[in-house]
């Protein structure tokens, strides 16, 4: 089954989510072509060409794709889609933005955020904040438009040497324009791909207390996340939010600090390998999913944790 995989990148770096989505694409059969749509994104195409199993990389390098506006991306992808049986992208805010437009243009249902490929036409996806798993089958012969929850797939190795083909830009719909970005800057790893994540909730009381978590994050090379309550209260920016309607993470270690464990939060982190909860309420639901629970006041426990890690050379 021929697949077009739309790469996730920032014009400089191919995102880890693309490597993982590639694994889902290969599970459909192949050949898999990778579309890199960007501006001055030749370097990204070169990285993509290393994805093991890629047949070729299509590079659409144009000012139209610099910010991956959904309207512009959809025109380009729909033009290419004719030749493929399936179009895949990571279920990032970018993929979620343009893929449904592609599906509507092709008059097919989109299958959102799959967590497994069960057969050539059969996929599983979480519904109700992950409290149920839905297995769906797309009609034989229909084109598939799929977004992939990348955290549940392993990264494809970068050992390939696919050719890069430059393609022209699609038509300019001219109905949307980029105004500005306000991106969070951080030296720490990205939430979605970090091996360790430490998140704070309403219990943190203020944004001024988040440096406590950042210190620990720096010791463990971790990313910092948050619950919705912490974001809503303005403690940290929106891109920290982990959950059903925020980011989904599945690190080796997830440390939840002052987070109660509402289902909407659990939806975003319960696939982590090891979960630690620090909460002063021993009845907090987070303890039902935690491998290690510490019932304690975080304002005492977190500085202690920092001390202990320091003592042990982290």
């Amino acid at each position: 089954m021929s697949v077009l995989l739309v790469a996730e990148h920032d014009n400089t770096t191919l995102k880890d989510a693309t490597l993982k989505t590639m694994t889902a694409a290969l599970a459909l059969g192949g050949p898999v072509d990778i579309l890199v749509a960007g501006q001055n994104a030749k370097g990204v195409a070169e990285q993509a060409s290393k994805l093991a199993g890629a047949a070729k990389v299509l590079l659409a390098d144009d000012v139209l794709y610099g910010k991956q506006l959904a309207e512009n991306m959809a025109v380009l992808i729909v033009e290419l889609a004719g030749k493929y049986n399936a179009v895949l992208s990571p279920a990032s805010t970018s993929g979620k933005n343009f893929m449904p437009r592609v599906a509507a243009a092709l008059d097919v249902a989109q299958i959102s955020e799959i967590v497994s490929v069960d057969g050539p036409d059969t996929f599983t996806r979480p519904i109700y904040a992950g409290n149920a798993m839905q297995q769906v089958q797309s009609p034989a012969g229909a084109k598939k438009v799929i977004t992939v929850r990348s955290t549940t797939f392993k990264a494809t190795a970068l050992t390939g040497t696919a050719p890069i083909e430059t393609i022209g830009a699609g038509q300019n719909p001219g109905i949307s324009e980029f105004v500005k970005d306000e991106l969070s800057k951080s030296e720490r790893p990205e939430l979605a791909s970090a091996k360790i994540v430490i998140s704070g909730g309403r219990g943190m009381q203020s944004g001024d207390n988040f440096p406590m978590l950042e210190k620990i994050a720096d010791r463990l090379k971790a990313a910092v996340g948050a619950s919705r309550a912490a974001v809503d209260a303005g403690f940290v920016p929106n891109d920290y939010q982990v959950g059903q309607t925020g980011k989904v993470v599945a690190p080796e270690l997830y440390i939840a600090v002052g987070i109660s464990g509402a289902i909407q939060h659990l939806a975003g982190m319960k696939d982590s390998k090891v979960i630690v909860a620090i909460n002063k309420d021993e009845e907090a639901p987070i303890f039902q999913v935690a491998d290690y629970g510490l019932v304690a006041d975080l304002f005492k426990a977190v500085p202690e944790l920092d001390e202990e890690l320091k003592k042990q050379g982290y």
């Binding site: 249902a109 149920a132 798993m133 797309s138 229909a142 979960i275 999913v289 629970g293 304690a296 202990e308």
Partner: peptide, 24 residues
């Protein structure tokens, strides 16, 4: 509908773990 729902199942459940007493 275009998609056929073959089944809806329970997600894998996590077992709760242990409580630790100290940070150490």
């Amino acid at each position: 509908p275009r998609l056929k729902v073959l089944k809806v199942s329970e997600p894998p459940t996590r077992k709760g773990g242990v409580k630790v007493k100290t940070v150490q």
